[in-house]
Amino acid sequence: MAKRVVPESARRRRRPTKQGQVLTHGLIVETALRMLREHGAAGLSARRLGLALGADASTVYRYFRGMDDLILAIADEVYGTAMAGWRPAGDWRADLRDLGLRIHHAYLAHPQAALLTASRVTGRPNEVGGDETILGILRGAGFADPDAVRIYHAFIDQCLAFAILDAATLALPKAAREADEEVWRDTYARLPARTHPNIAATAPLLVAQMNDSAYPAALDMLLSSASAQLGRDS
C-alpha cells in the first residue's frame, strides 16, 4: 500500500533542522538536486538526503511516497526551470525552437539529474503545462490534430534524447571527457585520404563540430520539415 502523503500544511517541522531550516517540499528537491550534482545517482538515498537536511531519513517520506516519487518531483522541477518566465513571440517556429533549446539547456544544467529523469513521464504540473503549451503552438499554427501530436512527439522525444546524450558526456569524469574530445583531432584528423577519403576530406569540419551538441541542428531540421508540411497543406 502506498504511503500516505501528509498535506503541506501538516508536514512542516515545528522545530528547525540541525541546519536551522524548516523542511519543505521545495527544500528537499533542491537538496536532492545538489546531491545528484555532487555525487551522482548512486549518492542519492533517503539516508544521505536526511543527513544533508539535518533530519531523520524517515522525514523524507512525510513529503514523498518513496524515492521514485522524489525522482519525479526532481524531473518536474527541472522542466519547470525551462518554462519559467517563457513568453511566446507569436511565430510558431521561433517559439518551438526557443522552447526546445530552453528544455535542453535546463537538463544540461543538471546532467546527473538529466540521466535519472529525462526518460520519465511525470504527469505533474510543469510537465503538463509544457505539453499543453507545445500542443497549443502547433494547433495554433494550423496543424491538424494528428500532425500536431506527431510533431509534438518527435519534438519532445528529440529534445529529451539529446538531453540524455549530452548529459552523459557532461557527467563523465573530466579526464575521460577530454580524452573522448581529443579522438577527433588525434585519430580522425590523421586518417589518410588513401584509406578514408571521406573522413580526410571533412576532417577539419569534424574536429571543429563533433564535440558540440548536434541538438540545435537536429531541431532546425525537424522544424524545417514541419514547416514544409504546413506549407504543402495550406
Rank of each mutant, 00 (worst) to 15 (best):
I137A: 05
S227E: 11
I74E: 00
A179E: 15
A32D: 00
L116E: 07
E181T: 13
L70K: 09
I156F: 01
A73E: 11
A114E: 00
I164F: 10
E77C: 13
R150Q: 15
G85S: 07
L135M: 06
D220V: 09
G20E: 11
V128D: 10
L115W: 03
A214Q: 09
G40H: 05
F143R: 00
G129A: 10
Y61A: 03
R97A: 11
Q229T: 11
G100C: 01
D220P: 06
F64I: 05
T133H: 04
Y79F: 11
A208P: 13
D166V: 08
P16M: 02
V29E: 12
C159H: 06
E30P: 02
R185P: 08
Y215E: 01
H104P: 00
R177E: 12
P7D: 10
F162M: 01
G80S: 00
L172K: 09
D157M: 13
I71C: 09
R12Y: 09
G142C: 00
A89I: 10
I199Q: 02
S9M: 11
A176Y: 09
T187V: 15
A113W: 01
E178M: 10
V121F: 12
A201I: 08
A109P: 12
N211A: 09
R65T: 13
E77W: 09
H39D: 14
A168T: 07
A161P: 09
V128Y: 08
A228E: 03
A141K: 00
L115F: 04
F155D: 04
F64V: 03
I199L: 05
G130E: 04
A73Y: 02
I71N: 09
A82N: 00
L101G: 02
Q112H: 13
M210R: 12
R124P: 14
D180E: 15
G50E: 02
L222Q: 01
Y63A: 03
R232A: 07
A179K: 12
D131N: 15
L33G: 06
P204S: 05
E182W: 07
L44V: 06
A84H: 06
V60Y: 02
T133A: 14
P192M: 07
P125D: 03
S234M: 11
T31Y: 00
G142L: 02
A73P: 10
H153L: 10
G140Y: 01
H104S: 08
G80P: 07
G90W: 01
G80M: 01
E77I: 04
A154S: 15
G80W: 06
P125G: 06
A226H: 00
